[in-house]
Design a protein around this nucleic acid. Structure first.
Length: 594
RNA sequence: GGGGGUGUAGCUCAGUUGGUUAGAGCGAUCGCCUGUCACGCGAUAGGUCGCGGGUUCGAGUCCCGUCACUCCCGCCA
């Protein structure tokens, strides 16, 4: 028999009545009636109410014991009378009458209560993460994460994928995020980099003939944190497949996501078949490449309206003449909304740093007119044209933003969320997945005005290689795709470019010489020159999947031991200084000393 | 690197127009209480009001600087 327990704290029921048991756990809560003491014992599995009265010689000691101490209890299961049953607890039909006890782990006075629904400052939660993790919500989030990962492993294995580990100490990659560097002792002056993703390795695995690979892969990027982005490290479900087209990857991931989200959440799936939206359509209709499709609002381009003679809205007309564009959001049947609703949105837009959002409502019977501060600037004919473009009906309203394209997209996509929230149009009880496809390969760099890769430089261009018009690089599309859920970008992937010649050609458009490419991607290019299969993959973010399933807005709520915003672990006190000795061994010296 | 928010007891927070000795709940300590499950009742202890400077007869409160945490922008192929 186990020395510490015969049962856990979540399994005893009235079937165990009169049984002698041993339980071990944390003291969750005490209720002291002077001559009778209730004591809730908690472990990973649940809570069991234990009790002891003054006739027992241990009574006085247990009265004094600190909450969150770990104790072992010997006692007898006793069925509760009907009035005293606690329906909130799995074990609420019984309680354990304590005969004797033993302290296994004493607890000092707590810096933060464990049994409480109160919110606490991050600093204290992270410093005492081991206490924070005992609390119900975050404890359950971490267990959910564990279940999600093991489910994914099982599914992927069943689908014929093999799990492989790839190196953690690897080489610095020239593109992309800032690397974490690790000095090499045996190679003075040289550094390893932690992988930003196993991108090149997973392609090499395909070249090596393994056909289907996955990994729950740690990825390291030295960039600043956000609420949904840990500083430093995160996990991806890294997937790569040989001899596949885009649709084959979609089929695997779509099936996996559907099963996963149905298994671990009660929310409805808005689409059983994920819609595919081209990058260009998404930017037009939603102003972003990660649209929240729970939101029914759609954006229209109304730039042409402001070139008409019969529209007198001169501020916008002037801006349009100098290259600005106009995008608009239509809201259905909002004619009875109060002035403060409309002004609230205009005010919000100004707070976002924009000059505001113009708006009006379509009204009238025989004659159509626009009601609102700028309504008078629009002729009836122009209103009819707007209704044609946007599909507006009488009683609908429209919000306009005018600015340079980038600025308009930024504002109008945020406005789409803001207005939908204000109108309560988003069903919180739904998951809306979609694929964003047909990404452009190249874009213009805002600063340098030169052509650069817009995403992954290893993606395969669309169309017949012989017929691609390389003279119009900005029109070239790639077999590159993102999966998006509820406005959260879960991952991007691509069919890879496995042809070295084609790769050199694309890199040359982005300004890299053949030598450049050889220098930077030697391993990769070399491998592709020895018989590479067509292949492609994707890498959904594990942390964000768990965030969606647990309804958490902050990634720390689904991470066991997170760092704070400044990339410090307050519990382990990392990063920390190292000894002169260590630095010397690594051939390093520090410029700044505190 | 830039912008916003927060910082008062171990924890969560209140603190009026600048005005006497800075408060509450939880927690801690002590006492009372045999059916609670956020048990109840009484008492006690606990404060460099983040830190530094300034204005003022007087600063938790106003001003300047600074630090910490957090959210956002930049960044994240």
């Amino acid at each position: 028999m186990n020395k510490y327990r015969t049962h856990n704290c979540g399994e005893l029921t009235k079937k165990n009545n009169k049984l002698n048991v041993v339980l071990s756990g944390w003291i969750n809560k005490k209720r002291d009636h002077g001559n009778l003491l209730f004591l809730d014992l908690r472990d990973n599995y649940g809570i069991t109410q234990c009790l002891i009265d003054k006739d027992n010689k241990f009574f006085k000691e247990l009265e004094k014991i600190q909450l969150e101490s770990v104790i072992k209890v010997n006692g007898v299961v006793s069925e509760r009378t009907i009035e005293t049953i606690n329906k909130e607890l799995k074990t609420g039909e019984i309680e354990v009458k304590i005969n004797s006890y033993e302290i296994l782990g004493k607890c000092k006075e707590l810096p933060m209560p464990v049994f409480s629904d109160q919110e606490y400052a991050e600093e204290i939660r992270l410093k005492y993460r081991f206490l924070d993790l005992r609390r119900k919500k975050v404890h359950e989030n971490i267990l959910l994460r564990s279940k999600v990962i093991s489910y994914i492993r099982k599914e992927m294995t069943n689908l014929g994928f093999s799990e492989f580990q790839t190196p953690i100490l690897t080489s610095s990659s020239p593109e992309g995020a800032r690397d974490f560097l690790v000095p090499s002792r045996l190679n003075p002056g040289k550094f390893y980099a932690l992988p930003q993703a196993p991108q090149q390795f997973k392609q090499l695995i395909m070249v090596s003939g393994f056909d289907k690979y996955f990994q729950i892969a740690p990825c390291f990027r030295d960039e600043d944190a956000r609420a949904d982005r840990s500083p430093g490290e995160f996990y991806q479900l890294d997937i790569e497949m040989s001899f596949v087209e885009q649709e084959d990857v979609f089929e695997v991931v779509e099936k996996l996501m559907l099963n996963l989200f149905k298994k671990f959440s009660n929310k409805k799936m808005l689409f059983e078949k994920f819609p595919k939206i081209s990058f260009n359509d998404s930017m037009l209709k939603y102003g972003t490449d990660k649209p929240d499709l729970r939101n029914p609002l759609v954006i229209s381009d109304l730039t042409s309206i402001f070139t008409r003679e019969d529209v007198k809205f001169d501020i916008f007309k002037k801006l349009v003449k100098s290259g600005s564009i106009v995008r608009a959001i239509l809201t259905k049947n909002t004619k009875d909304k109060s002035r403060s609703f409309f002004d609230g949105i205009d005010k919000w837009a100004k707070e976002q740093g924009a000059s505001g959002l113009a708006y009006f409502t379509f009204e009238g019977n025989k004659n159509i007119s626009a009601k609102g501060p700028v309504g008078k600037f629009f002729s009836e004919e122009s209103l009819k044209e707007i209704m044609k473009i946007t599909g507006a009906k009488l009683g609908d309203s429209i919000f306009f933003a005018c600015n340079k394209e980038n600025e308009v997209l930024k504002l109008i996509s945020l406005a789409r969320d803001k207005i939908a929230n204000d109108l309560n149009l988003i069903d919180q009880n739904t998951f809306a997945f979609c694929w964003i496809v047909d990404y452009p390969i190249f874009e213009i760099d805002e600063k340098t005005k030169k052509i650069k890769f817009s995403h992954n430089p290893f993606s395969m261009p669309q169309g017949d290689e012989k017929k691609i018009d390389f003279s119009k690089p900005l029109e070239m599309k790639a077999y590159q795709y993102d999966i998006v859920c509820n406005g959260v970008e879960l991952s991007s992937g691509a069919i890879r470019n496995h042809k070295p010649d084609l790769m050199y050609k694309l890199f040359s458009i982005a300004g890299y010489s053949k030598k450049n490419v050889d220098d930077k991607f030697r391993g990769m290019i070399n491998a592709l020159s020895y018989g590479a299969p067509p292949h492609g993959g994707i890498a959904p973010g594990i942390d964000r999947i768990v965030m969606l399933l647990s309804n958490e807005k902050n990634i720390r709520e689904v991470t066991l031991f997170p760092m704070n915003q400044n990339a410090q672990d307050l519990m382990m006190n990392s990063p920390s200084e190292v000894s002169e000795e260590q630095l010397k061994e690594l051939n390093l010296s520090l410029k700044t000393k505190k």
